[in-house]
Every structure is written in C-alpha cells, then in structure tokens.
Simulated assay, not measured.
Amino acid sequence: MGSTEITLHRGDITKAEVDAVVNAANSGLLGGGGVDGAIHRAGGPAILEACRELRRTTLPDGLPTGQAVATTAGDLAAQWVIHTVGPVYAKSEDRSELLASAYRESLRVADEVGARTVAFPAVSAGVYGWPLDDAARIAVTTVRNTESAVREAQFILFSDQVLDAFVRAAEPSG
C-alpha cells in the first residue's frame, strides 16, 4: 500500500469519473439534502433501494457517525457509493476524531470493494456546521496519513470558499 495522491477540484461530485464516490450521508441512509440528495438524485432509485436493504438487514438502526458502508452507484459514472456519516459540529465537545473516522472508514471500505480512485466531498462542512478550515485540515491530514490501496483521492468541492480552505489545508507546512 502506497501513499494516496490527493487532488482538489471545484465541481459536482455526482459527475466524478472515479471508482467510488463518498456520500456525506445521514445515519438514516435514506437520502437528504446537500451532497446526499444530489447523489441520490443523480444515481437514481438503485442507491435508495440498496440503502433500504441495508436498513432491513445489517443496519436496522442506521449507520453510526464515523462509520462507512458501500452500495451500488446506480446511474453515476462511479461503480460504488461509499456512504459515511460525519459528526454535527459542537463547540462544547471535540468531535474531530469522529470526523477523521468518517474519512478513515471510507478508505477502508474503498479497499474492501477494490476502489482505487475515490471522490470525497467536504464531510460535515455543510449543514453539519463544521468550521471550514478545520474540516479541510482534518480531511486532508486523515486521507494523507491513512494506509490505503486507494491511488487517488479527489476532493470535489462545491464552492470556491470550500476549495480555498482545502487548498490551504493541503499546502506543505513549514
């Protein structure tokens, strides 16, 4: 297992031509807003059906925060969607380990299914309220430091503001 190349892009993650797209899901796995809703809309009903099957079988209580699971990608260019649940930001409690876990577990699942190229969104940086610079730092550092067979991790970011935060986080320090 070598090091994963990290690339940063502004764009629509549903159009990523990669083996697996990471979905910033909610624990219910039945679709939602933001990236989650976009992936479900673009991927079609096959993704929701696969999620419903997981809820009927292995994940009756939903997917815990910081964990990840793969389903078909339906109509997306990718072969798999890796659903992960990031934590909601809380000033009163350091939940950064849960955010790092969402990225680590996504890479572990990518290895399980054989994905070598993976597109990540900015997990927890949208409606979950995580401060952008910190979300970007945790994302980039975790992916950089996690042993994985993934060759390329693309961060596909939805705005210039988010992209700028990831560019700063990816700069070599000192």
Rank of each mutant, 00 (worst) to 15 (best):
V88R: 15
G34D: 08
A153H: 09
L48T: 00
V85W: 07
C51E: 02
K91P: 09
R10H: 04
A50Q: 02
Q79L: 00
V69Y: 00
A100H: 10
R168G: 05
E5R: 06
R116W: 09
A73H: 02
A25F: 12
H40Y: 13
F158E: 05
A20V: 04
P45T: 08
E105Y: 03
W80P: 00
A169Q: 02
E97I: 02
T117K: 06
G28H: 15
R151Q: 13
R108E: 09
S27T: 06
V69M: 01
F155A: 07
D75H: 14
S159P: 08
P64F: 10
D19V: 05
A165F: 10
R151D: 14
E17L: 06
T14V: 06
T57L: 02
V81A: 07
G86T: 14
S101K: 11
G126Y: 10
S148P: 01
V113F: 10
T14H: 02
L163P: 04
P121T: 15
A24R: 02
V167K: 15
S148Y: 01
L29R: 03
E171H: 04
D111W: 14
L63C: 05
R56C: 00
T14C: 08
D19H: 10
L29M: 15
G32N: 02
G37K: 11
G31D: 13
S159G: 12
S101Q: 13
A78G: 03
G114N: 10
G31S: 10
V69H: 00
A50L: 01
Q67M: 13
I39H: 08
A165G: 07
A68D: 07
Q154F: 12
A165T: 05
C51L: 06
E5I: 01
I6Y: 05
R52F: 02
V118E: 10
R52Q: 15
R151V: 04
G174Q: 09
A50S: 04
Y128R: 11
A136I: 13
A68T: 08
T72Y: 00
A115R: 09
T117E: 06
R116V: 12
R10V: 06
R168E: 13
D12Y: 08
L107A: 01
R108V: 14
